[in-house]
Amino acid sequence: MVAHLLWILAAYGAAVLLVHVMHARYVKRSADQNRVVQYVLVTSNHERKVEWIVRALSLYALLHGVRVQVTFYDEQSGDQTLAILHRLSGCPDVELKVMDLDDSEKEKLKLRLRNSRKKEDRGIYIDLRVPAGAARIPYVQ
């Protein structure tokens, strides 16, 4: 009889704990829901990596409960990089924007890279043309 009563109390305690954990996650998610993480990526002939990068950022957004905005600057790709990016533009939790990297955009991007050390600039700038550039993206090694 006592053993049954202890099992009932344990089940009740587990249910109370579960309700508190779920409520804490709900409160945290509603506070983080407005948080946006911005990535600016420079690509050139990266058809083998670009889909994995977008999918990894989508997984990051899903697991951390944030919105991810990604701007791809493409420097005259001769492969299927742009076609892959346009196909992935409907990926959930990730806003994709694809732009060509011409001379005027290069100057603007260099200026943004210099000013990216400021706290009010929340963007993460990654040049994928550099061999170790993709290592700064979550879930990409």
Rank of each mutant, 00 (worst) to 15 (best):
A134T: 10
S58T: 13
V37R: 05
S44D: 02
I137Q: 03
E47V: 07
D121R: 13
P131T: 09
G65N: 03
L6M: 08
H20C: 11
F72M: 06
L17A: 14
V36I: 15
V68R: 01
H46L: 10
V140L: 06
Y125Q: 00
A31E: 02
S58E: 12
S77N: 06
R29Y: 13
Q69K: 13
K97W: 07
L85C: 02
D127Q: 09
P131Y: 10
K119Y: 05
K108Q: 15
E105Y: 08
R136S: 08
V140Q: 02
L59H: 14
Q80A: 15
I84Q: 01
D102W: 14
R48H: 14
E120L: 11
A3N: 10
A15Q: 07
L113K: 15
Y60N: 04
V66E: 02
V37A: 03
D93Q: 15
Q141K: 11
R67F: 07
D127N: 15
G65Q: 00
M99S: 04
L85D: 00
I124G: 00
R29Q: 13
G133N: 09
D79W: 12
E107Y: 10
V27H: 04
L111E: 10
A132V: 12
R136D: 05
A61K: 05
Q33A: 12
V70G: 00
V16I: 15
D121L: 13
R129W: 07
K49H: 15
V70Q: 02
C91S: 11
R35K: 11
L82D: 09
G78A: 06
T81Q: 03
Q76M: 05
Y60Q: 00
D102N: 14
I126K: 03
K49N: 13
A24L: 11
Y125A: 01
D79Y: 14
W7P: 03
C91K: 08
A135I: 10
H46V: 06
Q33I: 12
M22G: 05
R67P: 00
L96Y: 04
S116T: 10
E51T: 10
Y73L: 14
